[in-house]
Design a protein around this nucleic acid. Structure first.
Lengths: 236, 236
DNA sequence: CCAAAAGTGTTCACCGTACACCCATGT
DNA sequence: ACATGGGTGTACGGTGAACACTTTTGG
């Protein structure tokens, strides 16, 4: 194995980027920030930034950038590494390798833009991924990967609850699936399936009436992380 | 988003490491190299090395290191990114971030050690992952992640065939599953399940007699990449 | 002939799908 | 009263698990 002292280490900058996904306004949305400087000035990009110091952990850098650029607290949401993108030329200024993270957030409380946050906006991924929509760097590809990760993880984990408020109804949860997958699910079979998974949901005992119709039971997230048996989408 | 010219970029070295998995001697084995210099001199580590230049793609660096350190050709096997490890202090000399790849290889043709390859050895992952076995850096954790990736991908992809020679029998394929999962499978149900997956296997029409008993049909890899329906291991 | 491996057929339990039906509320 | 959404019961079809059974070779 070649060793770092054997030659000059190429000057590579290491960045961390964040794909923050949330369900809002009956669509899957992603948090983007408007770039204030070139390159891609004025275009939308993923929030992120460079490692601050030699001693900063990657996960820590992700959590820090999340807070700095969006005001969100990493402890309050699910944050996981997606993959690393390093094609030469992806940043026109210099060689940049970016370690990307995905975050899954419930409906955002309030101050998305403002405060420390730069101009942060939510945009439906459906719109972002349209061929005509232009996004800075290779971030569109990253967003596509993040969305596929989310879709896939709903199948075999209890991740969907991470998109819900602390207390939620079965319909809230089902709508997460429907919105992320873009597919209608049978409410009755969904209900039975989810209640059958041990440790996914904990009933609070409370009920809410948000429309005409029978009030829905409220649940909290349970301890289970894996969905067993899995909940498979209907493939094309 | 902070920009690279706003401050001094921390000196971070970017490396690429490889977890090459193969089925050999009725066990899942991983390729390791013996380190010739400190730190961890004399210990076993994953093959890998630093990015050679600012313009080298990560995937290219992985393929290059694979060839340099093991003599294998990346075009002949399945190579995919695993994840990136960057905990400060994981390399005692300086800050190193390593982008790890997993490779799945059929039985290795011949010259693993020798040639360009440094002292490369195959070792059963079961032995490597024992608590008493010491491996350089944080590579044991990386190996554990790679093994879990392999186990998991067998479930929903046709990856198992990547561990087999170009022509193989149903039993060869079943043994890949059994060895990687460490679990016995019913040969009869396995046979029916696999032949039922469209495009997984293409029969060559040939037969081989390797033991007493009815000769087995030979197959080649088919075009299918995804296993549908999935082949699930029995969870604990 | 016998042992052993390859491959087929059959049975049963379980799970997903579809949908009829009942329950509880707002208007 | 009635529309609307929440939740239960039930029948059907497909898949996995278990295993009896046939086929085809080596010894």
């Amino acid at each position: 194995m070649p060793e770092p002292d054997e030659w000059t280490i190429p000057e590579v900058a290491v960045a961390v980027d964040l794909a923050v996904l949330t369900v809002h306004d009956y669509s899957l949305q992603i948090m983007l920030v408007k770039r204030g400087i070139p390159p891609y000035e004025g275009m939308l990009a993923l929030p992120g930034g460079f490692l601050e110091s030699t001693s900063e952990d990657l996960d820590h850098a992700a959590a820090r950038e999340l807070h700095e650029e969006t005001g969100l607290d990493a402890r309050a949401l699910h944050l996981e590494q997606l993959r690393t993108y390093g094609t030469p030329g992806r940043d026109p200024r210099r060689r940049v390798i970016t370690v990307c993270y995905v975050a899954f957030s419930p409906q955002l409380p309030a101050p998305v833009a403002g405060g420390d946050a730069r101009e942060a906006v939510l945009m439906p991924v459906e719109k972002v991924l349209k061929p005509r929509t232009r996004i800075a760097f290779d971030h569109k590809k990253i967003i596509a990967d993040a969305v596929e990760r989310a879709r896939s993880k709903l199948e075999y984990t209890t991740l969907a609850a991470a998109f819900c408020a602390p207390e939620f109804t079965m319909t809230d949860l089902r709508e997460v699936y429907e919105i992320v997958w873009g597919e209608q699910l049978d409410p009755r079979n969904f209900h039975r399936k989810i209640t059958g998974v041990d440790g996914f949901l904990v009933p609070t005992g409370e009920r809410v009436s948000r429309q005409p119709g029978r009030p829905a039971a409220l649940y909290r997230r349970g301890p289970a992380a894996l969905l067993h048996p899995a909940m498979l989408r209907t493939r094309p």
